[in-house]
């Protein structure tokens, strides 16, 4: 169905810039996600930055393209994130400590050296999935309404 009123433009610069800027933004989101425990960052802002990388793909291309490169049901993603967050929070009850208590320990990882691993990161993973899922659901619903 051709729409004669709509302008057809060939955004070469935007499209080719998007193809690598998206990956840079996504890497920055991963960095923010893991930096979250001691410095600014965390699951929420990591999810928002990931969603903004996907929005950039939506802007330069269209909904069909995003569906093709990332065939994910965002509502399912929200539900899985919620489940991870709730299970991690209530996992503390199994060890006879209050709800939401988090445990951490130091490990010697091969590439990183001495690293402190926290269970709070698993909770943040749930928050990350919920934020990406909800944001993309809202944006895709708005985009499809016409």
């Amino acid at each position: 169905m051709k729409n004669p009123m709509k302008k057809h433009t060939n955004d070469v610069i935007l499209e080719s810039a998007t193809t690598f800027i998206t990956f840079i933004i996504f890497l920055f989101a991963v960095y923010l996600f893991f930096a979250g425990h001691y410095t600014p960052g965390g699951g929420f802002i990591g999810g928002l930055v990931t969603a903004s990388a996907l929005v950039l793909v939506l802007l330069a291309f269209d909904i069909q393209t995003l569906r093709q490169i990332l065939p994910v049901d965002y509502k399912l993603m929200t539900a899985i994130g919620m489940l991870i967050a709730v299970l991690t929070a209530s996992g503390a009850l199994l060890f006879n400590v209050p709800f939401f208590t988090h445990a951490h320990d130091y490990f010697n990882l091969p590439l990183f050296g001495k690293t402190s691993l926290h269970t709070a990161m698993l909770f943040d993973l749930g928050v990350y999935l919920v934020v990406v899922g909800v944001t993309m659901t809202i944006i895709q619903t708005i985009g499809e309404s016409d």
Partner: peptide, 13 residues
């Protein structure tokens, strides 16, 4: 401003 539409369903239509 350019196209009057921010998110397109299919840009080839």
């Amino acid at each position: 401003i350019e196209k009057g539409e921010i998110i397109e369903r299919d840009r080839n239509q």
